[in-house]
């Protein structure tokens, strides 16, 4: 898969950046889709973006501990303000996609495997 910068990815896929705006030069290698935190902890790899509908504070700790490039919250789920504040403090990027998890994953799949 092609490495992309978060800044390019956000623009090309029309995601919004909700937290970690100064960190968009991070690179993305792939993505992992799950709403189970232990599944993500066990299987997602560094520099992946994590597609989820979870919006509580604990997703920040997960993303930070395993060095994910960003969290992508799907389907216009209302992101918790405290979670976004924590993400800014912990240098975790939080993005939002207006599409469902299925469509968001599809967009990322096509985008990241493309040259």
């Amino acid at each position: 898969m092609e490495k992309k910068k978060l800044s390019e990815l956000i623009e090309d896929l029309q995601f919004d950046c909700l937290a970690g705006k100064s960190l968009l030069d991070k690179e993305v290698v792939s993505a992992y889709v799950s709403d189970l935190l232990s599944d993500v902890m066990g299987k997602a790899q560094p520099q992946m973006v994590w597609v989820t509908s979870q919006i509580h504070k604990n997703i920040v700790a997960v993303a930070s501990l395993i060095d994910l490039s960003a969290i992508v919250i799907v389907d216009e789920r209302p992101a918790d303000e405290e979670m976004l504040k924590l993400a800014d403090e912990e240098d975790v990027v939080v993005l939002a996609s207006k599409k469902s998890a299925f469509e968001t994953a599809g967009l990322l799949y096509n985008y990241l495997k493309m040259k």
């Binding site: 709403d35 189970l36 935190l37 232990s38 599944d39 902890m41 066990g42 989820t52 979870q54 509580h56 604990n58 997703i59």
Partner: peptide, 16 residues
Amino acid sequence: QMGFGAGMGLPNIKKN
């Protein structure tokens, strides 16, 4: 509902 309790915690500890 928070995405915990999938029964993967202790197996994850063992694996890592």
